[in-house]
Structures are given as C-alpha cells and as structure tokens.
Design a protein around this nucleic acid. Sequence first.
DNA 1: CGCGGGGTTGAGAACCGTCAAAAGTAGTGG
DNA 2: CCACTACTTTTGACGGTTCTCAACCCCGCG
Lengths: 250, 250
Amino acid sequence: MKAHSSIVAQESRGAPGRSGPSMSAVPFMQPGDGSAVSLLDAAETERLAGIASIVCFAKGARIYEAGDKAESIYNVIKGEVKTFCALSSGRRRITAFLCSGDLLGLAENGLYISTAQALTPVTAYRLPLNALDHLLRGDPVLEHRFLCKLCHDLRAAQSHAIMLGRHDALGKLAMFLQQLAAKNPNGSTLARGIFLSMTRSDVADYLGLSLEAVSRSFHKLEQLGIIRLDDRHVIQIVDQARFDKLVAAA
Amino acid sequence: MKAHSSIVAQESRGAPGRSGPSMSAVPFMQPGDGSAVSLLDAAETERLAGIASIVCFAKGARIYEAGDKAESIYNVIKGEVKTFCALSSGRRRITAFLCSGDLLGLAENGLYISTAQALTPVTAYRLPLNALDHLLRGDPVLEHRFLCKLCHDLRAAQSHAIMLGRHDALGKLAMFLQQLAAKNPNGSTLARGIFLSMTRSDVADYLGLSLEAVSRSFHKLEQLGIIRLDDRHVIQIVDQARFDKLVAAA
DNA sequence: CGCGGGGTTGAGAACCGTCAAAAGTAGTGG
DNA sequence: CCACTACTTTTGACGGTTCTCAACCCCGCG
C-alpha cells in the first residue's frame, strides 16, 4: 500500500456552480457521423458537480492502484491518463488511454482492476461511489448517460482487441495513430498533427509489441513517406491514402 | 442484405408471467469470490418480460448482421452465440462468446457493430430498443442492473485484450480454457470438464491465432500431460498446477 | 560534465503464419 | 445400412516477422 506515496495528489473542493463533469461518447442509437458528442447538459453536469471534488495529479502520479478498494470513479477534465495491469512476468499491458471527458475507475468486487497513472499533469473530478450510486438511483436520465458512456468504452475495448489481433506491427501502429487522430478534435495543436503524450514503451504495452518493434515501425512508416515525425511526439500523416490502406489491410 | 435468409428464425410471443430475462455478472462493488451472480430479482425479470418476446435460432443462424439497423438487444436464455467483425482481408475476429444470462446487440449510431451467430441452437429474449429505453428511463434500479452488466462486459473485453497481447500460443489457449472453465458453473456436464461449443477456427479467430496454431497447441498441451481431450470438444485439466503456471506466465 | 531515462539500431533465434495435403467427422440421401 | 460429400481437424515443411539480447545514441537535468 505504498501507492500515492512518492507524488502527493493535490485536492480541492468541488467547483460550485459554474462548471462540472463532462462526458463524451459516440451515441448508441442516434445516427451520426461516428464522432463523439457531449453526453451531459448543463443541469446534469451541475447535479454531478454536487458530489464531485477536483483532484490534481502530477505527471507520473498514480491515481489509484489495482487491488485498492474502489471508493471513487474519476472524470478527467484535463490531461491524459493510462490504465494498465501489471502482468506476472513484470511486463505491463495498457488497457486504455483516457483524456478529457473520459471516466476511469472500473472495479470488480469493490477493487480496482487496473492501475491508473497520469501521463501528463492531470485535473479530474472525483466522484465518490456511494454518492454517485445514490444519485443515479434517483436520476434515471443521468444514469442513462453513464450507460451510453459504458457502451462507448466497451466498443473501444473491442476495437482495441481487434487491433491486438493483428500481426503486422506497421498495421497496428497505423491503427493506433488513426484512433488517436479520431479521438482528438482535428487541429488540437497543429493542423492534422497527432500528439503522443505517451512513451514508445507505453505504445508497445498498448499494442502488444516490443518497444523496439514500435521504434522500428515508426521509422519504417517515415521511410515509406507515410508519416513524418516533427518531434518524437508529434506525428504528421503525409500520405493519407496509403495510411488508410495500411489501416484497412487487417 | 441477404442476412437471415437461408435459416429462418422462429419467433413466438413472450413468456407471460412465469419466467423471463436474466442477467449475470461479477459485481462492481460488493466484495465476493469473483464469481458471477444473478443480477435480476423476480420483479425486475417480470418487468423486462413485459416488453420481451422469445426468439429461436438454429445452429449457424445469424441473429443480426454488422451494419444492420439496431432495433433490439437480445438476452440469451439457452445456447451459445459468437459475435464477430469481418475484417477487410476476409478474416474475422471474434469479439465475444455469449451464453445464458448474457446480453448482445451493442450498436453505434444506431447500427450493430458486429455480427451475431448461433454456435448451437439458441433461445433468447428479444428486447426492442425503444421499449427498453422507455422502460429504463422510468426504472433506475433496473437500469442500474444494465450498468452492472456493461461493467462486467467491459472487464471481459479488457481481459480479452490482455489475452490477445500474449505472444505464446500455449499461454493464450490456457488462458482461454481457464476463462471458459470460470464462466461455466463447475460440473456443468462432467466434473471439471470444459465443453467447447465452438470450432478450432472460432477459437483461432478469438485468440488471434491461425487455426493450425490452435490445433497444434491443443496437441501440445495434451502431450505435456496438462490437459486431456475426451472428445475434441470436451477438455479435462489433468495437471492444474502446471496449467495455472502457464496461465500466469504472461 | 556526468548521469539516467527514453529511444534507436543491429544480429541471431524462436515462434507462428502460410501453403499444402491427408485424415477424421458429420450430415444427407439413396 | 451404407456411400457420398462437405466440413473440420490434423500434420508437415518452409519462410517471414517479431522477440530477445546487446550496444549505442540522444537529450534534459542536476
């Protein structure tokens, strides 16, 4: 239980009134273009804010540890988070990268099933499970939003599984980059630039590859003239057509 | 749109009163032994039964097709189902095997994201989405059950992803067998016997292996004296200790 | 200036995928 | 009951991609 020891999370009381939790997901039922939409209206946000407190985590800080008693779920406001499971071989498998509008804190039998760590400085709403449970039981509409969000996350997990099933490192990486590009609203930092807040090692643990294979694949994609690396963390897609072909060639 | 054409599903009106839908999942909050419990009580079952009709599918029949308009979700009563995505290369990736107490019919923007096919003769409740949506909006407790079930499925999908991240065929197969054993209540057919209703090809598509690798892995596990194959579809774990070691050696 | 984490590059070996062919199984109809 | 066919599974040989091990580089930081 030495979690949270090295880097202490700073905590403050919940934002009163003005703003509050937000969630985004691709809708279950409504037809759309496949992009994520905001799930909560102002009133719903405010109801959630009533039970929320704001917590901040430094880069690298653990938000919770697998096996800890699950007392809260978190709603990311700003920054990025990875959740991972430590395998018995000392290796780790990253189950998800979370960002603004995402929920984290999935538990089983009252215990977190994975560890959550901040990739960047993170600000998040902390929603105590008891209070959330109570709130949702009296608020079916709000509960429905959570249902939608979970459906979204389930689809994402299945999509992740499909990615992991591929055997070509290049295809995996391309698929990963596409998902990143789709997730972040176009032109977040640069026009069509994809920003990677995680390390090569994180990408490897997410894709089920070795760190070296990821490095080589980045290099090869660049050599082929499909992407360009401005920085090691900023990728531009140069040849969208060949990029898409690579993604589709499952 | 030639789905459902070759094998016609038989349909009948919902069971009045006596029984109805059921769902099982490992709890989110309550401490437990990690086994799944039934989520619905008699009253909840009955409320769901009010909007449900019973549908039957022959072995091999398609329950729905990826891309079809999603009008219902299904709750399996009896039999087993696979859901899969057809990849552009003609290959398919199985996302889940479902059985009694499971839900299927995940959609995105109103369209099913995968195809569902019966592995055995299947009986299921059919829950029209509109009616379900309406029911849940007025029934937060029942909606909460669905939330729990989705959490369960999300954990299962992440577990699947972790399995796919492994590179050793033997470990993948062992992990798969363990999940099957855990899912089916012990001693369903034979004491400690695991029954596989799916083909080797299905297992391969689920594990991200070639059909041949699955066959070889079964053979090797038997050769090593870890499992025994009574039938090609009935597996006995002979050496539990070495089996567990193989599963854990991620 | 030295240090350390993250990243790159190289060489060899192991594992799995692919292709191919044969053996076993189930379901059908004579 | 048997023969026929189609499907599933097994087995073999070969080639390729990635993993592993190892060394080296790059950059920020104390």
